[in-house]
């Protein structure tokens, strides 16, 4: 309910922002002359961003943020963000860039701009052998736990409109709903399901079906065309020289396939 409300409030405020606020965005030149770039990353979306044993943020998105700051030749100001506040942070000029395993939607693109995809993850629906489901259309009565607002959530909502989807704050809570029996199936990234089974072999997380390979995009403020273009160039070059694929292998365990550009 509160999240819902915060979305309404943010939508109203951001609608106001478009009309009231002049171009607030710090574009490429300003970032370089300021000598620092403000990048938001998640700390609750492993393997993109999570806290390590010494509670320092690590993950694909954190590496990406470091690499971008380095390539820009400026210092990195890292800010942890949540699913609820990442768009408002950008729209109100509290961040220059958000790298948060974000899926692009036409609605989100009204408020912020997306670069070409820099990573992708394979998502699926997982569960015990006793549940015989092989494709999204067969999902009806079974309850599926998913982390709210993630690419898995967006995909599942689109592919299985009849499914009984239970949305939780993050992957860990969704997983807990599955392990405790509150939900019969779990929709998550392949890598998360694999890790969970490695950690707890008794867990029955068999792939039921794989949803599409979903790309992740970097978000920037609107009104920063030079920064957007620079990031697209950076992603393009990273695709070509294999560095983004290497990053994917390091964190997700698979090579990066060819992704369509924006």
């Amino acid at each position: 309910m509160l999240k819902h409300l915060s979305r309404i409030v943010s939508a109203v405020l951001l609608a106001g922002a478009v009309t009231v606020a002049p171009a607030l965005a710090a574009d490429l030149q300003q970032i370089i002359s300021a000598g620092k770039v403000r990048i938001g990353v998640p700390v609750d979306v492993a393997p993109f961003g999570s806290n390590d044993a010494s509670n320092q943020p690590v993950g694909l998105d954190v590496d990406m943020a470091n690499a971008i700051a380095k390539a820009l030749g400026v210092t990195l100001e890292l800010q942890q963000i949540t699913g609820a506040n990442r768009v408002p942070y950008l729209a109100t000029d509290k961040l220059d860039i958000v790298i948060a395993a974000m899926g692009a939607t036409p609605e989100r693109a009204l408020q912020i701009s997306f670069t070409s995809p820099y990573a992708a993850l394979s998502s699926g629906v997982f569960g015990p052998d006793s549940i015989a489901v092989t494709k999204p259309e067969e999902l009806t009565d079974q309850t599926v736990a998913v982390a709210r607002g993630t690419t898995q959530d967006l995909l599942l909502t689109k592919l299985a409109p009849n499914a009984n989807i239970q949305r939780y704050d993050d992957d860990a809570t969704a997983a807990a709903a599955f392990t405790s029996g509150q939900a019969q199936l779990l929709a998550t990234a392949d890598i998360v399901a694999k890790d969970m089974m490695d950690k707890n072999p008794a867990l029955q997380l068999k792939p039921k079906f794989i949803m599409e390979f979903s790309p992740c995009y970097i978000g920037v403020q609107q009104g920063a065309p030079e920064l957007l273009h620079w990031l697209n160039t950076y992603v393009h070059l990273g695709m070509r020289d294999g560095s983004l694929s290497a990053l994917s292998e390091k964190w997700i365990g698979t090579k990066l396939p060819a992704l369509p550009t924006i």
Partner: peptide, 11 residues
């Protein structure tokens, strides 16, 4: 929440 997300041990 952050630690739960890293440990998958919410309880």
């Amino acid at each position: 929440q952050i630690i739960s997300a890293a440990t998958f041990a919410p309880l």
